[in-house]
Amino acid sequence: MMEIKTVSIIGLGALGILVGHHLSKKMPRENLRIIADQKRVVRYKSEDVFCNGERCDFNYITPEERCEPADLLIFTVKNEGLTEAIDAVKNHVGENTIILSALNGITSEAIIGETYGMDKLLYCVAQGMDAVKVGNELTYENMGMLCFGERSSELNNTEKVRRVVNFFEHTEFPYEVVPDMYRRLWSKFMLNVGVNQTVAVFGSNYEEIQREGQAREMMIAAMREVMVLSQKEEIDLNEEDILYWLNVLNTLSPEGKPSMAQDLEAKRLSEVELFSGTVLRLGEKHRIPTPVNRELYNRIKSIESQYDTNYAGQPRLT
């Protein structure tokens, strides 16, 4: 079985920094590559990137640079940067490359697979991280983990899965192999629809939804709308899945906040189309009302409409 020795990461947002910083302490520097365009590389090198107060000593590589394909390629970009990222990683994908996509939502694997083939992909979600990124500085209390696996349980003990397990064991990276990973992808989507959007519209942090009150009730109601739709899509999420995520949320730092809340605070366009936008479209498809997600969608769009459009419209790859 081939050993994973080289890793490439694209997307230096909160998750990219967290994963990259950990791996940079466990691998030879030249074997871990952070893919970024020249403009970003100049900025990262001039300003530095910090994780829990430590300077990150990253090995940057531009998309144009020729290199050996990566054994493991990890996408940690925002959804709106996915198309650009898929093109940017082409020099890093070879015959034996394994691809993990830690993006939010339920579609990124299929989109990446259209270019590089689904045979290279394992389904993946990041969970349990309570990181906050302000400028070039990331702080977190809980690192969380990457959950990954094949789409369905009958495929799960494959060589791809075993190669990633061995690598994460070797680098002491927290992980979980999930037997029915497509279902977990939907389950994490349900969480994001609830927690990301609710904390964002309340302008708060995890503490707001960890305690009883209006925000927590709204979050759970938004998640239940996804649960109902999942049953129409033959995924069959249930109340036990909601309870699972409520228990995970209780472990997070109360001062932490999800990415959408951080986006709205920084006056960046959010992933609202990926969350409630998807819920509304599925609701129309199945003729099921989704009033909570409609309210969240409208409120977030209203907040974004107050931005300076010249600033907010800038694309992001991080």
Results as ranks from 00 to 15, higher is better:
14 A>V: 00
15 L>M: 14
22 H>N: 03
22 H>T: 01
22 H>L: 07
25 K>Y: 06
26 K>A: 03
28 P>G: 12
32 L>H: 07
34 I>V: 11
35 I>R: 04
36 A>D: 04
38 Q>A: 08
39 K>R: 06
41 V>T: 07
43 R>D: 13
47 E>Y: 10
50 F>E: 06
54 E>V: 01
56 C>T: 01
56 C>P: 04
58 F>R: 11
61 I>Y: 06
63 P>K: 02
65 E>T: 09
66 R>Y: 05
67 C>G: 07
69 P>N: 01
71 D>E: 08
75 F>P: 05
75 F>Y: 12
77 V>S: 04
79 N>H: 12
80 E>G: 12
82 L>A: 00
87 D>E: 12
89 V>S: 09
90 K>D: 11
92 H>I: 04
93 V>Q: 11
96 N>R: 13
98 I>V: 08
98 I>H: 07
102 A>N: 09
103 L>K: 06
103 L>V: 01
104 N>A: 04
105 G>C: 00
106 I>R: 13
108 S>G: 03
109 E>N: 15
117 G>H: 10
118 M>W: 13
121 L>W: 03
126 A>H: 05
126 A>V: 05
127 Q>V: 06
128 G>Y: 09
128 G>D: 08
129 M>K: 01
130 D>Q: 09
134 V>F: 05
134 V>C: 07
139 T>H: 13
140 Y>K: 00
143 M>N: 10
144 G>T: 00
144 G>C: 06
146 L>Q: 11
148 F>R: 13
149 G>Y: 10
152 S>Q: 15
162 R>D: 07
169 E>D: 08
170 H>M: 13
171 T>N: 04
171 T>E: 00
173 F>V: 05
176 E>M: 08
176 E>T: 09
178 V>A: 07
179 P>N: 02
180 D>F: 13
181 M>Y: 08
181 M>C: 12
183 R>P: 07
184 R>S: 01
187 S>C: 14
190 M>R: 11
194 G>H: 03
194 G>P: 06
200 A>D: 09
202 F>C: 04
202 F>E: 06
214 Q>G: 01
214 Q>E: 15
215 A>F: 12
220 I>H: 01
225 E>Y: 12
225 E>I: 08
228 V>L: 15
229 L>W: 08
230 S>H: 10
230 S>G: 04
231 Q>W: 15
234 E>C: 11
235 I>S: 09
236 D>R: 14
239 E>I: 02
242 I>R: 02
244 Y>G: 00
252 L>H: 07
255 E>S: 10
255 E>Q: 10
258 P>F: 08
259 S>Q: 00
259 S>C: 05
266 A>N: 06
267 K>T: 11
267 K>I: 11
275 F>V: 08
275 F>P: 02
275 F>W: 12
278 T>L: 05
279 V>H: 02
280 L>Q: 12
283 G>P: 14
284 E>R: 15
286 H>R: 05
288 I>V: 02
289 P>G: 05
291 P>N: 02
293 N>F: 04
294 R>V: 09
298 N>H: 03
299 R>T: 14
302 S>N: 14
302 S>E: 15
305 S>C: 03
305 S>F: 01
307 Y>A: 01
307 Y>D: 10
309 T>I: 13
314 Q>T: 14
316 R>K: 07
317 L>Q: 10
